[in-house]
Computed example of a mutant assay.
Amino acid sequence: MSVYSFYIFDRHTECIYSKRFTAANNTQSSRGSTLQNGDVPASLRKASKDLDETKLIFGTIFSLRRMAKQLGGADDQFLSYRTGEYKLHYFETPTQLKFVMLTDPRVGNMRTVLHQIWATLFVEYVVKSPLAPAEHTGGKGVANELFEGGLERFMVSMGLLPR
């Protein structure tokens, strides 16, 4: 599996969609009422960890975009960065939606894939949906089954996820 996770941030810095594709996430216990580690429910610890992770990712993107513009000029863009463990791919739409994908470090440029996800899936299933809100304020995320299913099928068809 070469895709680890996928995020969408709106223009207000809110994470409106996140999806993990790692096996460890799928095998976690669903016992939310079990108390341990200081009597904090497991579901609350996971939610807190996910929130911290999304804030960290957005902060990293914000900083790297700013640095790229300061060092390279107004026309330079931040596209991706790679560590020994993962590669972060970034695509920003004209409406300032930010699409972020974490993959295996050996994966090539995913900018066109992120553009396709925006143009063919997000616009079709979320933007054009009469039931979807125009703004995702207050932590309301993208809750669209067609988008979820389309994203899974797209990732499998691109060979990014196992069948």
Results as ranks from 00 to 15, higher is better:
residue 140 K to L: 11
residue 124 E to Q: 14
residue 42 A to D: 07
residue 73 G to Y: 04
residue 120 T to F: 11
residue 21 F to V: 02
residue 45 R to P: 04
residue 150 G to P: 06
residue 64 L to S: 07
residue 106 R to Y: 10
residue 133 P to Y: 03
residue 15 C to W: 03
residue 152 E to L: 14
residue 53 E to N: 05
residue 2 S to F: 05
residue 98 K to F: 00
residue 9 F to V: 03
residue 72 G to V: 04
residue 59 G to E: 08
residue 15 C to S: 13
residue 149 G to P: 03
residue 87 K to M: 01
residue 140 K to W: 12
residue 58 F to H: 13
residue 45 R to T: 11
residue 94 P to K: 15
residue 136 H to V: 08
residue 1 M to Y: 03
residue 113 V to Y: 00
residue 34 T to P: 00
residue 25 N to V: 11
residue 81 Y to W: 13
residue 23 A to G: 06
residue 128 K to Y: 03
residue 80 S to V: 06
residue 115 H to Q: 15
residue 75 D to T: 11
residue 112 T to I: 06
residue 145 E to F: 01
residue 59 G to N: 10
residue 58 F to W: 10
residue 101 M to D: 07
residue 105 P to S: 13
residue 59 G to P: 03
residue 116 Q to F: 06
residue 82 R to D: 01
residue 140 K to D: 10
residue 83 T to Y: 14
residue 49 K to R: 12
residue 155 M to C: 15
residue 98 K to G: 04
residue 4 Y to K: 05
residue 99 F to T: 05
residue 50 D to A: 09
residue 21 F to T: 02
residue 154 F to I: 09
residue 123 V to P: 00
residue 147 F to C: 02
residue 68 A to V: 06
residue 133 P to C: 04
residue 50 D to N: 10
residue 83 T to C: 09
residue 75 D to F: 07
residue 22 T to L: 13
residue 79 L to Q: 14
residue 129 S to Y: 01
residue 103 T to I: 05
residue 34 T to W: 09
residue 65 R to W: 00
residue 153 R to P: 01
residue 110 M to Q: 14
residue 28 Q to H: 05
residue 47 A to W: 09
residue 16 I to P: 05
residue 116 Q to G: 03
residue 92 E to Y: 02
residue 64 L to H: 08
residue 21 F to I: 02
residue 85 E to K: 15
residue 119 A to H: 13
residue 52 D to W: 06
residue 152 E to T: 12
residue 79 L to M: 12
residue 43 S to G: 03
residue 163 R to E: 14
residue 25 N to P: 01
residue 94 P to C: 08
residue 133 P to T: 06
residue 86 Y to T: 08
residue 129 S to E: 06
residue 7 Y to C: 01
residue 26 N to V: 08
residue 116 Q to S: 12
residue 125 Y to I: 04
residue 108 G to I: 05
residue 57 I to M: 11
residue 88 L to G: 02
residue 117 I to T: 11
residue 36 Q to A: 10
residue 30 S to C: 12
residue 59 G to L: 05
residue 151 L to A: 00
residue 14 E to F: 03
residue 85 E to Q: 15
residue 76 D to M: 12
residue 157 S to A: 14
residue 20 R to W: 09
residue 156 V to E: 04
residue 43 S to D: 10
residue 134 A to M: 12
residue 90 Y to P: 06
residue 100 V to E: 02
residue 35 L to G: 08
residue 69 K to G: 04
residue 108 G to V: 04
residue 28 Q to P: 03
residue 109 N to H: 11
residue 79 L to K: 12
residue 85 E to Y: 14
residue 69 K to M: 12
residue 131 L to H: 14
residue 145 E to K: 10
residue 78 F to A: 07
residue 4 Y to E: 07
residue 75 D to I: 06
residue 46 K to E: 13
residue 52 D to E: 13
residue 49 K to D: 11
residue 126 V to I: 13
residue 135 E to W: 14
residue 129 S to M: 01
residue 101 M to E: 04
residue 134 A to R: 15
residue 124 E to S: 07
residue 54 T to Y: 07
residue 116 Q to I: 07
residue 155 M to Q: 02
residue 107 V to W: 03
residue 156 V to H: 04
residue 9 F to L: 08
residue 101 M to K: 05
residue 104 D to C: 05
residue 50 D to V: 08
residue 14 E to L: 08
residue 160 L to S: 02
residue 109 N to C: 11
residue 53 E to K: 08
residue 148 E to P: 03
residue 129 S to L: 01
residue 110 M to F: 03
residue 83 T to A: 10
residue 21 F to Y: 14
residue 85 E to D: 15
residue 155 M to R: 00
residue 131 L to D: 15
